[in-house]
Design a protein around this nucleic acid. Structure first.
Lengths: 156, 156
DNA sequence: TATTGTTATACTCTATAACTATA
DNA sequence: TATAGTTATAGAGTATAACAATA
């Protein structure tokens, strides 16, 4: 004889793809955040470092635009990096309102270890997928990103 | 002639699968959070509602365990739901330390609309994938969740 | 002693908006 | 007037740990 069920919901949380995406993504991000935390770095700080390293964003306003954060929030992130002597701010010659951002040698020295943390975290979570599956997942996510015009770099 | 590149980084942010996962997941979650916000509900509150609806968790401690939040955090989430008259707390007959949680009729009346918000959000983000692609994505994410023993319900 | 749930406190992250200095 | 960057303030969300009641 069956045990009576509590009123079954119309749909469970697990029905939604967004649920699975969030479940896995949160774990990957939390793992990465823990890895960075051992080096006293936040994900937002890591992203800013990489933006400046790649020179895809060399002013605070550009970092803000690239990440979708406000200029106020970026200002604090850059403060942290500068306190740590990983970032040098200098005024633009042509416009004294504008700053140019550059990584210090100390930052460039630390980057390989941070990159290793990122690599290891990715490896740890995705190694259970073979190469073809990883390529498939990447393709699907990139298709979604492209379709929704996602340009900004996620920092949380 | 090629334009000289700025010092190329060892690996870009986009190298990592975690990057793409976070990029897409954050957008889906943010979209859902906006949808719920129009009904003055947080994602954590929505998850708690669904946990109680499904009766997979009927005490605060069980909701805490299911979501990975602390009992202190859950207590506040439940306060919000109770203030709204969506939740009834009652003491267990057999153990006066324990509470039993139940949704009110008011909550059950509101659930279909909230579920519609969740459905629409999922539909909005994933409709660019066809049925086969969605199944593929779901399968890959579930494989990752299973491999890493992810049981808790993500609330942020 | 151990457990359930609550509460006081603090911390992190971020947005908003006022502010300064330049242009 | 408009823009770059900073700062003051506030809010959301959550953890930690002390707490009261109960077992």
């Amino acid at each position: 004889m069956k045990k009576p069920l509590p009123t079954p919901p119309t749909a469970t949380l697990q029905t939604h793809l967004g649920y699975w995406l969030r479940l896995v993504s949160n774990q990957v991000s939390a793992g990465f955040a823990r890895g960075l935390q051992a080096r006293e770095l936040s994900v937002a700080e890591w992203v800013a470092l990489k933006q400046i390293e790649g020179a895809s964003a060399v002013t605070p306003a550009q970092v803000a635009a690239a990440t979708g954060m406000t200029r106020g929030a970026i200002s604090k992130v850059l403060d942290k990096l500068e306190e740590r002597r990983w970032l040098a701010r200098s005024l633009s010659i042509s416009d004294n309102r504008v700053q140019h951002l550059a990584l210090t040698a100390r930052a460039r020295h630390a980057l390989p270890e941070l990159t290793a943390i990122a690599n290891q975290n990715d490896e740890h979570f995705f190694h259970v997928l073979d190469g073809a599956e990883q390529a498939l997942l990447r393709g699907l996510l990139q298709k979604l990103a492209a379709a929704h015009h996602l340009h900004t770099v996620p920092v949380d």
